[in-house]
Computed example of a mutant assay.
Amino acid sequence: MDELEPLDVEAWFQAVRLLMARAKASTCDLEQQVRHLFHLMQLAPRPLRDFLTPVCGETELEVLLESGALESAALRLIAPSVKFSVARNCDERVLATVNFPGGEAAGFAASAHLASAVVQAWTQSVVLLESHAT
């Protein structure tokens, strides 16, 4: 990933919280939510970048999104060092859990869409990380 200048820490966490609220409220712009999450990863504060770096680059992400592979795109955003799980319950809802290295609490989400569950769990895990750091 190109070295972009990070956002101010407070502004970055605020942007993550806004994306989390948006993801919980609606899945109608799911492609944009996945893209927004990728861009937030690129703009993350430097100390967080080691475990926030997605597996794919922007070109690969765009190819996946343009082909409608939202699930694959969302999963490619999770860095290898991040613990995560995805499962379906008996109601066919996707359950996702994301836990960053050193994180004391995991983000958890349930959604009808895998990509939405991943975005929600990822953003919730970041918010929990912030709350444990303060």
Rank of each mutant, 00 (worst) to 15 (best):
T97D: 05
A96L: 03
G103T: 09
L75P: 01
S116M: 04
R76P: 02
N89T: 11
R76A: 15
A79D: 02
S111P: 02
A121Y: 05
R88Y: 04
A115E: 10
E66L: 07
S67L: 06
E92W: 06
L77I: 12
K83I: 12
C56Q: 02
G57Q: 10
L75A: 07
L70E: 05
A69Q: 15
L65C: 04
L65S: 09
C56S: 07
A73I: 12
I78Y: 02
N99W: 00
L95Y: 01
E104F: 02
S81P: 11
E66W: 01
T97H: 09
A74I: 10
E104N: 13
P101H: 01
V118F: 05
S116H: 04
Q120F: 04
D91I: 08
R76I: 05
L114H: 02
S85V: 08
A112Q: 11
I78L: 15
G102A: 04
L75I: 08
E60A: 15
E60R: 08
R88V: 10
S67K: 08
A110W: 03
V94E: 04
A69M: 13
L77F: 07
V119T: 02
R93E: 15
E60F: 06
R93H: 11
N89Y: 08
R76Y: 00
S116Y: 03
T97I: 07
G107A: 05
P101K: 08
E71Q: 05
L61H: 11
V82I: 13
F108G: 00
N89E: 11
P80W: 13
S67G: 01
L114Y: 06
A73V: 14
V98Q: 03
N89S: 12
L77G: 03
I78F: 02
T97R: 00
K83M: 14
Q120G: 10
V63I: 04
D91V: 12
S67V: 09
V98H: 01
N89K: 10
F108E: 15
A69Y: 11
D91Q: 09
G57Y: 12
A74T: 11
E104K: 12
V94I: 14
S85W: 03
N89Q: 08
D91L: 06
V98Y: 05
A112S: 04
R76W: 01
N89A: 12
G68W: 07
A96K: 03
A109I: 10
L65N: 06
V98W: 01
A106E: 04
R88M: 09
A106D: 01
S67C: 02
A112Y: 06
